[in-house]
């Protein structure tokens, strides 16, 4: 699943059009979805972002292969071009700093960002937005730091009164194709593969039920050893389980030594 987080409906609209996302009313927040993507409009400000992202992630808990992209507009110092897309490597929220892990190549300009409480009318050292730290704090409870990307598009040089709904739609619209390559870069980061198939996992759990907690931990370790060592060898767990405790222990001992031989 790909999670998009925007603050404004105007930021969401070009993305919804590009990926054919449809309105979904499963949560008391504005959501759009298709089979592979969900877009949340969290509203403006850190608190709204924190609440809405927590609700979304609690509802659809991300898996290791999922990714999250927070995309929206930002104000920036004058050496940033209006319309430039920025990839954020440090989020500064007063004295707290947050760092997404950028483990992929890209062609965007990287920068730090200050996440502030109100729209900024005075220029500061870095670009500014109002949601990134809230999104980060909520999302990092649910996914690893390399599963997230924060993309901000410069809408103004700290003249928030100049930003219009139509302008925001046009800015986001100009960058929807960039999202395609960002998604494929994020997806290309190597993921841990599941060691056991669902069927194997069921068999393992049934087998473990016959043993004590420490015995089943030892069995799990031996099975993991076997699978990591012999990636393509099938497991054969079709065992007759004896009734006597002593015989079961012997069986386990034999099984562990054959798995780790």
């Amino acid at each position: 699943m790909i999670y998009f987080i925007t603050a404004l409906d105007a930021e969401a609209r070009p993305i919804c059009e590009h990926y054919c996302l449809k309105r979904d009313r499963s949560l008391p927040f504005t959501l759009y979805r298709n089979d592979a993507m969900v877009l949340l409009v969290c509203g403006m400000g850190k608190t709204n972002a924190l609440m809405a992202v927590s609700a979304l992630m609690g509802w659809r808990i991300p898996k290791e292969e999922d990714i999250l992209i927070n995309i929206g507009i930002c104000g920036a110092p004058s050496d940033y071009l209006i319309g430039e897309a920025l990839l954020i490597h440090q989020i500064i929220d007063e004295d707290r700093h947050y760092y997404p892990d950028i483990l992929f190549t890209h062609s965007l300009r990287e920068t730090s960002i200050r996440c502030v409480g109100t729209p900024q009318s005075t220029l500061c050292d870095y670009p500014v937005d109002m949601e990134s730290s809230g999104v980060f704090q909520a999302a990092s409870r649910f996914c690893k730091l390399h599963q997230m990307a924060y993309v901000k598009i410069v809408s103004d040089h700290c003249t928030p009164e100049s930003v219009t709904k139509e302008g925001v739609i046009a800015l986001l619209h100009a960058h929807v194709n960039m999202l395609d390559s960002l998604i494929s870069s994020l997806k290309a980061i190597p993921k841990p593969t599941l060691l056991f198939s669902a069927g194997e996992r069921d068999e393992i759990e049934i087998l473990k039920d016959h043993f004590t907690k420490s015995q089943s931990d030892a069995l799990e370790d031996a099975l993991t050893y076997f699978r990591l060592k012999h990636k393509d060898k099938p497991l054969s767990l079709n065992l007759h389980i004896p009734n006597s405790k002593r015989e079961r222990s012997l069986l386990l001992e034999k099984l562990i030594s054959s798995l780790t031989a």
């Binding site: 490597h89 440090q90 700093h97 760092y99 892990d101 483990l103 730090s112 990092s140 409870r141 996914c143 690893k144 730091l145 390399h146 980061i189 190597p190 993921k191 841990p192």
Partner: peptide, 20 residues
């Protein structure tokens, strides 16, 4: 990227040793 202390990067929760 300028930081105050190495631990704010090195000791972050939710890092993936394997991915990094």
């Amino acid at each position: 990227i300028l930081i105050d202390h190495y631990k704010e990067v090195f000791n972050r929760p939710a890092q993936s040793f394997a991915a990094q």
